[in-house]
């Protein structure tokens, strides 16, 4: 009886993990071309295979990695690069706070810590929009499935780009720049179909971001847009949240 229960539990873990990997396929698909581009570009910029793969494995934040390589090439100081990275990636603090708060009842501190390290824009967006698939006590395996597949695609893609050079024709890799935006849009649209006010929150965040970016770096502008856009949700969605 006990064994059966353990087996049942194992199965659920595996099933949740698989479900996570499947849910994360769009991220994996979107990451591979961008990661390959990163590998190509940073190898051409003079980073070794070890360095560029290590950067993807340890930093795991696309935009800041491209920026970092640019700054390394431009002979920027370490302090400058690290501060610029912090500014650009600070948005993940806001996203992580939102995500951790929403999974606190289902995922232990240990699980949350593990998952937090893989939190990118895309992983956050996909995980947040699919929470109904994971409201049980094995939820962490669902999120590990999403985050880990994205992580592996990113790290291995970077290595492949560095080793093989331009395996993807330039025109195609440029066209793939739309991929992650299409991912964000296809997460947002179904949510707006269900509740149009979510679209209003997104629209307000867009406008504030567009205005803010005139006055500050794009990293801070996204933070400001996200915070103020989210704040508009407090008012707009008051009765919905109850």
């Amino acid at each position: 009886m006990a064994e059966e229960m353990i087996e049942q539990k194992q199965y659920t873990k595996m099933a949740m993990f698989k479900q996570g990997v499947i849910t994360g396929i769009p991220i994996t698909l979107g990451y591979i071309p961008v990661a390959i581009t990163f590998g190509v570009l940073s190898f051409q910029s003079g980073l070794s295979l070890l360095e560029l793969t290590l950067m993807s494995a340890l930093v795991f934040a696309g935009a800041s990695q491209f920026m970092g390589v640019n700054m390394i090439v431009a002979n920027a100081s370490m302090i400058e690069i690290v501060i610029a990275t912090f500014v650009l990636n600070f948005r993940h603090f806001i996203m992580s706070l939102s995500f951790m708060n929403s999974i606190r009842d289902h995922v232990s501190l240990k699980g949350r810590l593990g998952v937090s390290l893989g939190l990118t824009d895309e992983a956050f967006a996909v995980a947040s929009m699919n929470q109904e698939k994971a409201n049980n006590n094995q939820a962490v395996y669902f999120y590990i499935g999403i985050f880990l597949s994205g992580y592996l695609a990113w790290v291995l893609g970077s290595l492949v780009g560095g080793v093989l050079g331009e395996v993807i024709p330039e025109q195609l890799s440029q066209s793939m720049g739309i991929a992650l935006y299409a991912l964000f849009i296809s997460l947002l649209v179904p949510a707006v179909k269900k509740e149009v006010r979510y679209g209003l929150v997104a629209l307000i965040a867009m406008l504030i971001n567009a205005i803010a970016v005139q006055f500050m770096s794009s990293g801070w502008a996204i933070v400001v847009g996200t915070l103020l856009g989210g704040l508009s949700g407090v008012v707009l969605l008051k009765e919905k949240y109850g």
């Binding site: 947002l188 965040a205 502008a221 856009g229 704040l231």
Partner: peptide
């Protein structure tokens, strides 16, 4: 507090908005 929870719950939609625009204009 409740309103902060509501704020955090709205963050994913706001973040999607901020991530999409105006960045998407720079695809090419």
């Amino acid at each position: 507090k409740d309103w902060i929870n509501n704020w955090l719950q709205s963050i994913p939609y706001a973040a999607l908005g901020a991530l999409i625009f105006p960045g998407v204009l720079l695809v090419k």
